[in-house]
Amino acid sequence: MKIRIPATSANLGPGFDSCGIALSQYLNIEVLESAQEWQIKHSLGADIPSDETNLLIQTALKIAPDLAPKVLRMTSDIPLARGLGSSSSVIVGGIELANRLGNLNLSQKEKVQIATEIEGHPDNVAPAICGDFVVASYVDDEVYSVKHHFPLCDVIAYIPDDQLLTSESRSVLPTSMPYKEAVKASSIANVMIAAILNGNLPLAGLMMEKDRWHEAYRKKLVPHLDHIRSISRNIGAYGAFLSGAGPTVLILSPEEKTDQMVQELGKLPISASINVLSIDQEGIQVF
């Protein structure tokens, strides 16, 4: 059995802790054989546990404590601590591992609920499970989510080599916001979502760059965001925004603008990877 979980990008600017998209980078989990103890074969670095202390197995055992140990193989092209849902993909993978090995027959809604309870918010885990574009809320311990087709475009990921932990990026956010400012922030998010549903990427991208919930506070941690936005506007991309907590920046680009966009991004004086991705429409897959 093989389980494939997509990378994700949360927020899309003003859709803070609520909106997310699934992307064409993947965590792959393969179940190999039964064993006396849990073992994960991987080449992801010494910091990633190879035993049952791994988040994948911890998540699975939290849901199905009596699972018999297996040897697993884990591969991933989702970079760690870059704002592309690396930890969420592992949580979602652990839930599916428990679901399949424990014959739990969980529904998609149940998987999203469990994943959100573990992660704390649905913006990454919901699109990892459902695929495509998902808007979700987590209020009074209940998750509500809607999946919709995201308009066709290239998604350019500018991924700095330096990590930025979510905990560090969240620490710069305010604990409260004036009511009038919150109303403005909410209205921007509403228009952004409506524009996506209408297939209007120029308007959606414009709204993505007007976020008032988090990006202004995180800019000092991601000074390259303004530079990338300037390049994006000059070339004619739809918009650029922080992917999750950063430091990755995503640029939504018409296909005909992508090569020029990548070329200009490569001139920035930052050590980074530049990947041209697409929207993953399926979410988690089991083969």
Rank of each mutant, 00 (worst) to 15 (best):
P254G: 12
A189S: 15
S186A: 15
C153M: 06
S273R: 13
D226K: 15
S87N: 05
Q163G: 00
V31G: 01
P254T: 08
C19Y: 14
Q263W: 01
I29L: 15
L55A: 13
A245P: 09
I78F: 02
P6E: 00
I231S: 08
A195E: 09
E110R: 12
R100W: 03
V143D: 02
P178D: 15
R4L: 12
R73F: 09
V125P: 01
A216N: 15
L12C: 03
V286A: 05
A35D: 09
C19G: 01
F241V: 11
S76A: 05
D77I: 04
P151A: 10
I274H: 03
Q36K: 14
P6K: 00
S171M: 10
L55D: 05
S230I: 05
L80M: 14
D17R: 09
G45H: 06
L12H: 03
L106V: 09
R73M: 12
A182V: 02
G83K: 06
L164H: 05
R4A: 10
K220C: 06
V92D: 07
A81L: 07
S24Y: 03
V90C: 12
G83N: 06
P79D: 06
A216P: 01
P223Y: 11
A35V: 02
L225T: 01
V139D: 13
I196H: 07
R82L: 06
E181F: 00
L165K: 14
E209K: 08
I129L: 11
D280N: 11
L206Y: 15
L250P: 10
S9H: 02
D77R: 11
G93T: 04
T258D: 06
V276H: 04
Y26V: 10
L106P: 07
Q39N: 09
I57N: 06
L104P: 01
A245S: 15
K180N: 14
I251K: 04
H224M: 09
I279G: 02
N105F: 07
Y26T: 09
S176M: 10
V146G: 00
S186H: 12
H149I: 12
L242E: 12
L32E: 13
D51I: 02
I159W: 08
D47C: 00
G236W: 13
K147G: 01
A185I: 08
G246P: 11
A68E: 14
R100H: 10
P178E: 14
P49T: 02
V276Q: 07
A46N: 12
D162I: 11
I274S: 02
I118A: 08
S176Y: 13
I284V: 15
L277C: 10
R170K: 13
D161I: 07
P6T: 03
L164M: 07
A68W: 00
V222C: 13
I78S: 05
N198V: 00
A128Y: 06
Q281F: 00
D161G: 13
I40Q: 04
K41T: 00
L173H: 12
M208L: 08
R229D: 07
E168H: 13
Q36T: 13
I63W: 10
H224Y: 04
R212W: 06
Q108L: 14
H149Q: 14
P49A: 03
A157R: 08
Q260M: 12
P6H: 02
P65I: 08
I274V: 14
N124Q: 03
S137K: 05
A7E: 10
A157L: 10
P174A: 09
V249A: 11
G236I: 11
V135Q: 07
L206K: 15
S278P: 00
S89P: 08
T116N: 04
I114T: 04
E33A: 15
A128V: 11
L104F: 03
